[in-house]
Write a protein that binds this DNA or RNA. Structure first.
Lengths: 258, 258
DNA sequence: ACCCAGGTCAAACATACGTTTGACCGAGAG
DNA sequence: CTCTCGGTCAAACGTATGTTTGACCTGGGT
């Protein structure tokens, strides 16, 4: 009667199922669970209304599976790769932090999966449900732990809790732009889709954070000069207007355009 | 026919109207516009369903008026008073920033109006509507401008945009805890309702931010010792366990010694 | 006395919701 | 061919939504 459907099968299933999940991710992330109607959802997915019952059983389980899938995609997002091989020197760690923050803003500029993950996470945070656990264990926690790992190199004496607070301070600054984007853009004159602006913001967050972590100015300067040849790194000079289109340099290639 | 109702009359109206607005603020802030049903709302308010039509005209206009009222209450919230009389010395500015951040966490610990404002703001940011403008002009903008004014004292050479980014870096850290509270609490072991914990977090954000603003360590130390007699300011010493119930000094005078 | 505006109430309104049903189609097995 | 099974489809299900209606009560004005 009801456990006949393939429900939460792991492997990628039919195209119908995937279309459903894609549309669900897009809409749930944009407007939240309650604000999305199934008819609108299946219309966007291009499938029949009954498909959701067949493949998932109910709207709620579609949502849960959507969140699960989105959160698990974290591991394949290139941004976190900048933190992955835990750096050994202070210089490397500072550089990793800079690249990480820049990567966040590159992804957010591209309206990518990161936005969907973050928005799903936020909706869950504001109105928690069964999906919260998934969000925490497979998204939030790994992120702050990875970042804390890098920060640990920068602050040798700190204990776990202190590192966690540091990591959250860095993430909080970036999250602020990611989640409150419409407000920030309307409030300030900024437009986060311009590469120059988002780059400036990213670098501001990076330097602000490195200083907050008591990293020496020399290291900060070196870390900011990571990708360009040398280019006066510090001081509020307007960043190069439109020359660099791929702000991430070394760690792995960041070309995720799709 | 429809503009007969008193709609958006300014002065405080009937108790019915106020009960409606109170319940609306609570529910809309908690679950968002779409997730709240009128019947649930009027039940919580203890009034008849038709009252919303009579006093506001529709659910949408009830919501708009709710947001407007919540955002305008900003001026009467004591937290921002810590920033109001723009300090003249670096020490006073640093102290103001510390007290401000601490005040934020005190309010958030009390589940106060601040949470409602912030949550309404966030819902608007994630799914913008006509109310976004109100949120920006009467809440977001004044806040970052007030904070930027204080920061301007700490960073004499900075231009407007730089000050704005600094202000957002500070606010972003605090917002992160306010908005993602359920996630943070489940992810870390923290409990933000404990005064000791929230005080530690607030002080961490304050010091992190002051260092991010290149404030000298001496000033940082002095600013953190604002309310207590002197008490080893830095180094994560356990804050006073349960002695201070009102971490904010008097609104005008920020020398909190009492 | 009458009237009328301010305000509340239960009931009905039309629509939209999530869910369910039963028919239908194509392909593989016997 | 027949039978079954994975999968899709339009239509209907019952309920919950936001909104509207018209009766009703109350208190002052004249």
């Amino acid at each position: 009667m009801e456990s006949r459907a393939p429900h939460a099968v792991a492997g990628d299933g039919s195209p119908t199922r995937d279309a459903l999940l894609d549309a669900a991710e897009e809409l749930f992330a944009a407007h939240g669970y309650a604000a999305v109607g199934m008819r609108e959802l299946v219309a966007r997915a291009g499938v029949n209304l009954s498909a959701v019952k067949y493949h998932f059983g109910s709207k709620r389980e579609l949502y849960l599976e959507t969140v699960r899938r989105a959160m698990q995609r974290r591991e394949s997002m290139e941004v976190w790769a900048a933190l992955e091989p835990r750096p050994s020197t202070v210089d490397a760690a500072a550089k990793a932090l800079v690249l990480f923050v820049r990567g966040l803003f590159v992804m957010m500029r591209a309206r990518s999966e990161l936005s969907a993950c973050a928005r799903l996470m936020l909706h869950e945070a504001m109105d928690p449900s069964d999906a919260l656990e998934d969000v925490v264990v497979s998204f939030t926690r790994p992120n702050v732990e990875a970042l804390a790992g890098v920060i640990a190199v920068l602050r040798p004496g700190a204990d776990r809790q202190e590192l966690e607070l540091d990591a959250r301070s860095v993430l909080g600054q970036a999250l602020h732009y990611l989640l409150l984007r419409p407000i920030v853009e309307r409030s300030a004159g900024l437009s986060l889709s311009e590469s120059g602006t988002s780059r400036e913001i990213a670098d501001h967050i990076a330097t602000f954070s490195l200083r907050g972590l008591r990293v020496s100015e020399a290291v900060v300067g070196r870390a900011l000069a990571a990708d360009g040849p040398k280019k006066n790194p510090i001081a509020a000079g307007e960043g190069a207007p439109a020359s660099h289109e791929a702000p991430m340099g070394d760690p792995d290639r960041m070309e995720g355009s799709r």
